[in-house]
Design a protein around this nucleic acid. Sequence first.
DNA 1: CTGAATCCAGTCGGATACTG
DNA 2: CAGTATCCGACTGGATTCAG
Lengths: 123, 123
Amino acid sequence: MGLPVRKNRTAPPPPTCALGECMNLLRPAWAANVVWYLGAAPRRFGELRRDLPSISARVLSARLRTLESQGVVERRAIDTSPPTSEYLLTDLGRELIPALRTIVAVGEQLKQRPPARPARHSR
Amino acid sequence: MGLPVRKNRTAPPPPTCALGECMNLLRPAWAANVVWYLGAAPRRFGELRRDLPSISARVLSARLRTLESQGVVERRAIDTSPPTSEYLLTDLGRELIPALRTIVAVGEQLKQRPPARPARHSR
DNA sequence: CTGAATCCAGTCGGATACTG
DNA sequence: CAGTATCCGACTGGATTCAG
């Protein structure tokens, strides 16, 4: 995972900047959406599946585990019958919400823009 | 491009939310970095290549064209000899900078965190 | 319900070579 | 310098199946 790395690099690897660190978390499909929905309220696995109608269980599971391992999401096993679990953002994870809010705002404008022209050069 | 779409969906497609719209722009490799560097100052193609030491010309070119087509980046041909060009953020593109700043802040903390444990469940 | 495992098609992006 | 074209391996993520 992570930014693709050149194999035949003749120069030392670039100083992995902090922007890439965090984008690596948000890049995979649905990752940002999962954080976004967890920002609204703690949620269980099945709830997230309904929030994100077309996500597959495999991917949701993978996202949650990665986000958890990075300290963005916390999982709480609830000892009921049958056993359930819920996920919530950590303090670190909550820091992402304002950023995502801004990104949503840009997204809104993108949706209302004239259809994107191809933008070719020097033809 | 865009979020993967299920083929065998029995329910109507989810309302493509604005978060996904914008993340689609930032998701491809180096895209956020390109915006970030352009936020600091207008830059030429070659300058960006030096800013992002391990990006390939092919990918940089592709990112710039996509960002331009979406109205986030503007290209200005400078009629010198030899002809050069420079890229800069549009007003819309500049809206992303505060968001990226927040993301960088989270990235800083991620770098200083204890090494991510695998996080497997119910073993 | 909450996941994990397997399979596999489609995409992404690096390497390389070439043009104006 | 500022890109574009082609080739191709690696990775992503959907579908499906199975388990606790």
